[in-house]
Lab assay of single mutants.
Amino acid sequence: NQESVVAAQLIPINTALTLVMMTTRVVSPTGIPAEDIPRLISMQVNQVVPMGTTLMPDMVKGYA
């Protein structure tokens, strides 16, 4: 089963992602794949992401 990127903390809107903000977990439905974490660093979220929420492609500016 593929791991997806999950918020390790509350991420406010327009925050640039850092490694410490993200963790990985096997979730359903699947979100952004864990191997894309290096690509996500410094990208901004376009909404508030509560802790434990799976990051979906449409939540990250410039990802999709």
Rank of each mutant, 00 (worst) to 15 (best):
A16G: 12
D58L: 07
M21D: 11
I32Y: 03
G62L: 10
A8F: 04
Q2T: 13
S42W: 05
P33E: 05
L10E: 07
V27I: 11
D58Q: 13
A8N: 08
G62T: 05
I37P: 00
T54Y: 03
N1I: 08
P57A: 08
V49M: 04
S28R: 05
P57I: 05
T53R: 13
I41P: 03
I37S: 07
A64R: 02
G62Y: 06
S42C: 04
M59L: 05
N46D: 06
Q44T: 11
Q9V: 07
V45Y: 00
V48G: 06
T54I: 07
T30Q: 09
R39V: 13
A16Y: 11
T15D: 04
K61I: 14
V6L: 11
A64K: 03
P38E: 12
G62S: 11
D36V: 07
G62R: 15
V27T: 11
V45D: 00
T53V: 13
Q44A: 10
P29G: 11
S42M: 12
V5Q: 01
A7Q: 01
V6F: 02
D58Y: 11
E3T: 14
A64C: 07
L19T: 11
M43P: 00
V20G: 09
G62V: 04
A16V: 09
N1P: 07
T53C: 04
I13T: 12
R25H: 08
L10S: 11
L17I: 11
G62A: 08
A64Y: 08
P29S: 09
G62F: 07
V27Y: 02
S28K: 12
T53H: 10
Q2A: 09
T23W: 12
D36W: 10
M56S: 09
Q47L: 06
T15M: 09
I37F: 07
N1T: 13
L19M: 13
S42N: 13
I32C: 03
V60M: 06
M56I: 08
G62W: 08
T30V: 10
R25Y: 12
I11D: 00
I32L: 14
V26R: 10
V20N: 10
I37W: 04
E35Q: 12
P38K: 06
V60L: 13
V20T: 06
V26L: 14
I13E: 11
I37M: 15
M56E: 10
E3I: 13
V45E: 00
V60W: 01
S4R: 02
A16M: 15
M22P: 00
E3S: 09
Q2P: 10
R39Q: 09
K61P: 14
A8M: 04
M56H: 08
L17Y: 00
V60R: 00
I13Q: 13
M51Y: 07
P33D: 05
N14T: 05
V49P: 00
A34C: 03
A7L: 02
S4H: 03
V60Q: 00
I32P: 01
T23E: 11
A8V: 07
Q44E: 10
P33F: 07
Q9H: 07
S42Q: 13
T18Y: 03
I41W: 03
I41R: 08
L10I: 08
P33Q: 12
L10Q: 13
Q9K: 11
M22S: 00
I37N: 01
P33K: 05
E35S: 14
L19P: 15
R39F: 07
G62D: 11
P38W: 09
T18I: 05
K61C: 03
M22A: 00
V5H: 01
M59Y: 06
D58W: 14
P38M: 12
N46V: 13
V48W: 13
D36R: 15
L19C: 04
P57G: 11
T15G: 07
V5K: 00
Q2C: 03
T24L: 10
T24A: 13
L40G: 00
I11Y: 01
N14C: 03
T18A: 10
G31A: 04
A16D: 05
G52V: 02
S28F: 08
R25S: 11
S28G: 10
I37Q: 08
V27G: 12
L40I: 11
M22R: 00
A8H: 07
R25V: 06
A7E: 01
S42T: 06
A7D: 01
A34K: 08
V20M: 08
V27F: 02
M21F: 05
V27N: 06
P33S: 10
M51I: 11
G52E: 06
L17W: 01
P38N: 09
P50C: 05
I11L: 09
P38C: 03
V48L: 14
T53L: 09
I11R: 01
Q9N: 05
I41Q: 11
E35I: 15
S28M: 08
A8S: 13
A34L: 05
T24E: 07
M22K: 00
M21L: 11
M56D: 05
S4E: 00
V5G: 01
Y63I: 07
V27W: 03
Y63Q: 07
A16C: 04
Q9C: 03
V5P: 01
E35C: 03
L10R: 14
P38I: 09
I41C: 03
T54K: 04
V26Q: 15
P12Y: 06
M21K: 04
V26W: 10
P29T: 07
A7F: 02
S42P: 02
P50V: 09
E35L: 09
D36H: 10
L40V: 14
I41A: 07
Q44V: 10
Q47A: 07
R25P: 01
T23M: 15
Q9W: 05
A8T: 10
